[in-house]
Structure formats: C-alpha cells, structure tokens
C-alpha cells in the first residue's frame, strides 16, 4: 500500500483512470490531449501490479473531467478501465467504460487515400466492429493498431 502511494500519490480533485492495459497510459494521455502544457497535475503509473490484470497502468489527472467521446475511444484501447471521479480526496463516482457503437472525430484513418485525409472539412467517423473499428468513409479496418491513430 505505502509502496503504491509512493508511486502514484492521491489527488484532491480530478479523474483517476484505473485498470488501463499495461503500456497504454501514454496513449490515454494522448486521447485526453494532455501533454503537460495545460498545467494539469498528472501522475502516471505504469506496470503496476494488479490482481485483475497482472500488470496495469494508472493515470491520474487533476482538475479535469472526461468527455463522452474521450471515454469512447478510451474503451477501445483500455476496455477494462475504470474511471473514478475524485472530489476532495474521495471517489464520488466510479464507472467502467463500455464499448460505444462508434467514435467520431478522435481517430485518424490509416488509409492515406481516404477522403478524410484529403483536406476536406470533415470529422472522421468509425464504427466499432467485432475486434476493432472501421472507417465509415473508406471501410478500412483498424485492429490492434488503434492507439497509433489517435488524432487529438
């Protein structure tokens, strides 16, 4: 316990994204558009021992709540994640992510010849399919490489 707290300290207000698949913490930050310049306090734990996952990542962001589209994409790269809203050091809300039917405007299409990569005034839109997502425009399927195409 104390070792855990040494790694990732508690926050007063903000969001704790727990049970993130090990190795995905930096992609979670990418989805949230956080690179440190915003001034939020950010703590990242990587490869933390976990009963449920073996190893997991944890991301804590102070003074920041997640939008639905952020949660939607998060669910694709971290399907086991739990999202804890913290106020005054207490967890006031705890939610598991759920797979959405689609994601809009967050991923870029890996097909360079897709119309969404052609300088059009257009938001990308992906349907969630069996084991990945699929571009609504060119039908290209993205599977394990989703995190590489986060465009925020």
């Amino acid at each position: 316990m104390s070792e855990h707290e040494l790694r990732v300290s508690k926050i007063r207000d903000g969001t704790v994204i727990d049970h993130v698949e090990a190795g995905q913490a930096l992609n979670v930050l990418a989805i949230l558009g956080i690179d440190g310049a915003e001034g939020f306090g950010v703590s990242v734990g990587m490869n933390v021992p976990s009963d449920r996952l073996g190893r997991k990542d944890i991301v804590k962001v102070e003074d920041r709540e997640l939008s639905q589209s952020e949660v939607d994409v998060l669910s694709l790269i971290a399907p086991e994640a739990t999202i804890n809203i913290v106020r005054d050091f207490e967890v006031v809300e705890k939610n598991r992510v759920t797979r959405p039917e689609g994601v809009t405007g967050v991923l870029s299409c890996p097909n360079r010849n897709c119309i969404t990569n052609a300088d059009e005034p257009i938001e990308t839109r992906f349907d969630v399919v069996a084991d990945g997502v699929r571009c609504d425009y060119c039908a290209t399927i993205l599977r394990s490489d989703i995190a590489e195409h986060i465009d925020v």
Partner: peptide, 10 residues
C-alpha cells in the same frame, strides 16, 4: 468519380 476512397460517401 473521385480518386479518394469514401469521396462518394462524403
């Protein structure tokens, strides 16, 4: 007719 995939959808 357009060279980009998805152009007609757009």
């Amino acid at each position: 007719r357009h060279p980009s995939e998805g152009a007609a959808t757009l």
